[in-house]
Structure formats: structure tokens, C-alpha cells
Amino acid sequence: MIVLSKTLLEIKNLTTSFRIGEEYYAAVDDVSLELKENEVLAIVGESGSGKSATAFSIMGLHNRAKIEGEITFKGRDIANLPPSKINKIRGKEMSMIFQDPLTALNPLMEIGRQIGEVLLLHNSEMSKAKRREYSIELLDRVGIPRPDRVVDQFPHELSGGMRQRVVIAIAIANKPELLIADEPTTALDVTIQAQILDLIRELKDDLNSGVILITHDLGVVAEMADRVAVMYAGQIVELADVESLFVNPQHPYTKSLLSSVPATEYAQDRLHVIQGIVPSLQNLPREGCRFRSRIPWMDESVHEEDPKLHEISPGHHVRCTCYQHFYFPEESKEEQTNGVT
């Protein structure tokens, strides 16, 4: 990147823990990230990786979680802000797009009032008529046909794709500098997905906002992201610009994920299957390389005792030393006896 743009968000050593029984378990474990203006940072991982928990920590949406570390947004630490202060930021300077547009809107409220609410909350002087007028403008902006009619309709009268556009209209209503999109297209059809991604990209350029895109879909990452953080079991295991990640993936988890997506140049006729299962929050290995148990054919000595992120080229970070020796079991004949389950 030649253009030097301003840092918008800086996360340092973020650890988000949930209480289960008597103990706290970290779902996000020592995550550090940076996001610049007009940049799209994708956080990729499977369920239980901590990607959504990271997004919720930034938004302050966790109800009963212990949040440690710093979340510096526009020069100010917003981790653990009291509700009255974080509410001034949420919906205005940063906002969020949710996964399922069918459940993200209040079924008993007209579309116009749901958009109007976010306008009113951050500008109590805006009149009702003005809010309505602006809501129609926003609906038009996100590509909803006949916005003057839709503004008085209820969510159930709209299709899934249209509802997601309404959720996006709410998110951009106050021109936020940070937009967090949590699996924004997972529940949508492919052609609608393409349209929604185009819309997010366009709006980002318009508003010069930074976007954090949470997804499990590597295709969406390749289409949207400038930089990518791959998360596994609460940690970032690889962080790189999008080209390096796809052209030169390093971490065993990244490589495994890529080769398990069907019908891509990474996939074989037989898809790669990561052995074992994602450990639950209570059973996360807290010491050593967390991916170790998923690549049991590798020699124990290739792992670091206390795996760190290593910068292997400018901006490309990989956790643990095991990446230097990694190979797929299929590549070596004698390793094939390791029964794949």
C-alpha cells in the first residue's frame, strides 16, 4: 500500500472471556489488530474461532463478558466504556450489519421508524418529518425500489435481500467511520450476495469508512478484503494482505481451510478434511500450538512452546513455527495410515 491513510481502530491484546460455571474462559485470546480508513479487514474462521466475539467486543455488545486489553477507536480507548458513553458511539461512529436479515428487524415496527430510531438517538432535534424524508433517501441509497412505499411497510412484507438492505440503511444512517459486517451475506442467495457485497464496497468508498468483515466464506474474503486475519480457537494464526494470504498461505490452518473449499484451484477431487473437531471453549488447549491436535501427523518438535506471531515478510504474520515444516498427509505415502475420521 502506497497511500498512507490514518489508523482508525487499534486493538491491543484483546482478551474476551465468558463465565462458564465458576471460571472464565477466553473466547478471544490476546488479539491485536489494526484497521485504517477505507480499508477492509476480513476476519476469517469457523464457528468457535472467536471472530464474532471479537466484533461484539468492539461494539461493546457482550452482556456478561470480561474484556481485557485496549480497543482504541479514533484515539480513544472504548473497551469497557460505561453504557451511556458507548451508546453515543454505537450507531453513529461505528455500526454493525448482522447475519440474518429475517430476524434482525423488529417485526412490529415500520421500516421507517426503525431507521428513524437510529437518526433520533444521535440527533434528538431532527423532526419526525425530516427523519422520514431522510429514511426514504437512505432506502433509495441502498437500492430499494419505491422507497416512499417501503418506508411505511413492515419487515415481513420484504424479501430477505431487501431486509438486508434495510439493515445496511440503518447501519449507514449516521455515516459511521467504522462498519462491522458479521456474515452479511451468509443467509442470502448468490446473486443477492454479489449485490450486497457491491453495495458495501460502494458505501465504504463513499463514506471513507473502515470495514471489518467477519466471514467463514473464503470466496467473499478474496472478493472484498484488503487484509485478512485468520482466527483459530480464539487466536490470530495468520495475518496478511489478501494477495499474500491466497497466493502464499503459510499457516497449516489457512492451507487446510483453502483446500477444503470445493471447486477452487486449491481443492483436489477429494477435499481435504481437517482431522478432529474444533474444541469447545472449555476444552481449548491453552498451552502450546492450539492447532497441534488437528495435525497429529506432524512431529511434536516442529511446534513452538509458546507460539508467537512471526513476521515472515512485511505485514505477513504467522503463528507458531510449525508452518515451516507443514505438509498434507496425502502428500506422503507412509503417513496415509493415519486414519482420517
Binding site: E223, V242, F246
Partner: peptide, 22 residues
């Protein structure tokens, strides 16, 4: 054609090309 074009491409180097094709 439209469905096939809507499939995300996993190669970020072809991003622009793919988008304009779509």
C-alpha cells in the same frame, strides 16, 4: 450465466476482472 458469474472467485488478483465481468 449470471449465477455462475456470481460465484465468488478465490483469487484476489483477478478481483477487478471478475467484478467487471459480473
Amino acid at each position: 450465466k449470471r449465477l455462475v458469474a456470481a460465484i465468488p472467485d478465490v483469487d484476489p488478483r483477478r478481483r477487478e476482472e471478475h467484478q467487471s465481468f459480473r
